[in-house]
């Protein structure tokens, strides 16, 4: 109809979540009686993932589904909300943290300042170490090159573990040819999808951060303000369901890989070492806190939460 509103929704995931994307599109269309239509784009299709915030702000896309790490150079709290090592240890804990009033207010303000509307959070899942050789302690890693991104790399560096950065697409060849000895990238399902099990068998749970990342939904201001309250409600509900579906899909996928039994050999880092990781992570927390007053506030809340949970 003439009143149809089309929204360009850009996720950072690839085609692997197509069934979830389709359900999301159908839900929105159905609940709005066809007045709202979602056009979905996969990671990199319209803009590179690290341009998602910029694109939502300018209106190249209407809704961005990314994570804070992509735009932490532009929005102060990006790194913290994406997930700092030691930040949280369960889905429930992460949810409770982000749903709390002061945290929600900080995020809303930060993204408002960045020129976009903060719509809510999604939650990732396992985020652990995959290596070619078994790992029994952090000491084992000192002679191996591990692929890790900035915040985790900083923590590993504290233990003198050498890190390198490789894009996800190069992990397979990097691992199979020995450019890296291990990687911290995601959970069992992601590693299996990248076929890394063909070259590296040892999955070590770090107990450092769970969920290993959180996701953020942002909307273009003008477009969002132009929606009716009813449409806003439909979108918010559908996005919440979409986010939950992704978390469930990751959880089920990870469990299914565990259940297969022969894909990876699972091990757990000794408690003592996991504690050390959390302690070492404090330096990264402080570094983030120093970036802005708002960051200091958010880190204070994170510390208070960790203390309340008895981890600090």
């Amino acid at each position: 109809s003439a009143d149809t509103t089309r929204l360009r929704f850009h996720t950072f995931y690839g085609t692997e979540i197509d069934p979830i994307l389709k359900k999301f599109r159908d839900t929105v269309k159905e609940n709005s009686g066809g007045d709202l239509r979602i056009q979905t784009f996969h990671g990199g299709e319209l803009v590179a993932s690290d341009q998602l915030l910029e694109a939502a702000k300018k209106g190249s896309i209407d809704i961005a589904h990314g994570h804070g790490g992509y735009w932490s150079g532009q929005v102060d709290i990006g790194n913290i909300e994406a997930g700092l090592p030691g930040g949280w240890t369960s889905l429930d804990e992460a949810r409770a943290f982000f749903d709390s009033e002061p945290v929600d207010a900080l995020l809303t303000a930060a993204y408002d300042e960045a020129g976009v509307v903060y719509l809510g959070k999604g939650y990732g899942h396992d985020y652990d170490l995959l290596t070619k050789e078994p790992v029994t302690s952090l000491d084992d890693l000192k002679t191996r090159k591990i692929r890790a991104t900035s915040n985790v790399a900083k923590v590993l560096e504290y233990f003198e573990i050498p890190t390198v950065y490789l894009p996800a697409g190069e992990l397979y060849i990097g691992m199979s040819t020995g450019v890296i000895d291990g990687a911290i990238y995601g959970g069992p399902i992601e590693y299996e999808q990248l076929k890394l099990n063909e070259t590296a068998k040892h999955y070590t749970r770090l107990n450092m951060l769970m969920p290993g990342w959180t996701e953020t939904f942002l909307a273009n201001k003008e477009k969002w303000d132009g929606l009716s309250d009813e449409h806003k409600a439909i979108m918010e509900e559908a996005i919440a369901q979409f986010a939950a579906d992704i978390t469930d899909w990751l959880a089920e996928g990870n469990q299914s890989v565990v259940d297969k039994g022969d894909v990876f050999e699972f091990a757990v880092l000794p408690d003592e070492d996991s504690k050390q990781l959390t302690v070492a992570a404090q330096a990264v927390w402080q570094e983030e806190a120093e970036r802005s007053a708002r960051n200091a506030e958010l880190i204070d809340l994170l510390v208070a939460n960790a203390k309340a949970q008895g981890r600090l």
Partner: peptide
């Protein structure tokens, strides 16, 4: 394309420059 279509020019530029 409507709003924001032009901005894809600048994001395309940066992604072409920012590729190891």
């Amino acid at each position: 394309f409507g709003d924001g279509g032009l901005d894809l020019l600048i994001s395309s530029t940066f992604s072409a420059m920012d590729n190891f």
